[in-house]
Computed example of a mutant assay.
Amino acid sequence: MSRYLLVRIGQSLLAVWGIVTIVFVVTRMLGDPAVLLMPLGTPDAQIQELRNSLGLERPMLFQYADFLRHAIVGDFGLSYQYFRPAMHVVLERMPATITLTGSALLVGSILGAITGFGAALARGRFLEFPIMCLALVGQATPVFWLGILLIMFFAVELGWFPTGGWVGAASLVLPTAALGIFVAANITRLFRSSMIETLSEDYIRTAKAKGLTSRTIFTVHAARNALIPVITMLALLAAELLGGSAVTETVFSWPGVGRLLVQAIDSKDFPVIQAGVFLIATIFVGINFLVDLLYTVLDPRIRLGK
């Protein structure tokens, strides 16, 4: 177990280093930050002065070394737009994104597990068809389009919820529904397939031969092992929602990191972009690390290396 843990920690640290390096390279590939930050027609002397103040005249290797040294402690410099430490700006928006992502995952995973379990039990019966049709539609529907429909109907027409922003708990309902439906659709299809595959295993037939009840077989033996791929999917969805909910946050004017990054890209606020990408990527790696540890609880064969 200790060797497995050390290997996973090493892989996680290597992944974070790779992400930080990619962020550095990509921001430099966008062009000279000094030129991008200054308006058109700015004299070369002022551009050179800004370049010197940002340390951009130094060799690229030295810039990378300084960037890496500061990134380790979360220092990405001052925001060009807010004139405050970029990481502080991102951290202020992170609770809103985590709240939205967590709510969507909670609602979507519960709904998806129930419908997926029901579809597996109803395999070959009439109930399976409408469940899988709804799951397919939910998976194929663009989240931003669904969000616009929810706003038009429940916020504009009925006036039940705010159209956007944060004005209380009611503001969380529509964006959670938009993202939660997408999560539920993915979980439904995967959990159904995983349950059907698990129910065909030899140990399930052995449990039936021993006289165990169907409820015990489904809930204790089959569901536990069927959850392993579902947990993987939840980890990927969590990362996708954390990093890819920018469109949803923009549609609902949600004060999260995704919307902040969109605004930072528009204003060429590179420190905020770097800090946001670094923080989201670190959370993504951390989630995957925790999932790997959870695998060892659900399936001891992973822990024992079998």
Rank of each mutant, 00 (worst) to 15 (best):
residue 138 G to E: 06
residue 24 F to D: 03
residue 197 E to D: 15
residue 173 V to I: 15
residue 213 T to K: 10
residue 245 S to Q: 04
residue 185 A to P: 07
residue 187 I to V: 15
residue 138 G to Y: 05
residue 19 I to R: 02
residue 39 P to E: 08
residue 251 V to D: 08
residue 6 L to A: 15
residue 261 L to N: 00
residue 23 V to C: 01
residue 102 G to N: 09
residue 114 I to L: 13
residue 232 T to C: 07
residue 53 S to G: 04
residue 111 L to T: 14
residue 179 L to V: 07
residue 40 L to G: 14
residue 166 W to R: 10
residue 158 L to D: 07
residue 6 L to H: 09
residue 13 L to D: 02
residue 300 P to V: 12
residue 112 G to E: 02
residue 255 P to E: 09
residue 68 L to H: 03
residue 249 E to D: 08
residue 205 R to S: 11
residue 20 V to Q: 02
residue 265 I to R: 13
residue 92 E to R: 08
residue 29 M to V: 13
residue 183 V to N: 10
residue 273 I to C: 03
residue 236 L to Y: 11
residue 176 T to M: 06
residue 182 F to L: 06
residue 264 A to P: 10
residue 244 G to K: 05
residue 238 A to L: 07
residue 63 Q to D: 05
residue 26 V to N: 06
residue 297 V to W: 14
residue 46 Q to C: 00
residue 245 S to R: 04
residue 201 E to W: 02
residue 267 S to P: 00
residue 143 V to G: 08
residue 244 G to A: 01
residue 277 V to D: 03
residue 17 W to F: 15
residue 183 V to Y: 03
residue 209 A to G: 15
residue 238 A to I: 00
residue 159 G to R: 13
residue 277 V to N: 01
residue 74 G to L: 05
residue 212 L to G: 00
residue 294 L to E: 08
residue 199 L to H: 02
residue 100 L to Y: 06
residue 278 F to A: 15
residue 194 S to M: 04
residue 301 R to Y: 12
residue 162 P to E: 03
residue 145 W to M: 13
residue 279 L to V: 15
residue 168 G to D: 11
residue 61 L to N: 05
residue 155 A to N: 11
residue 224 R to C: 13
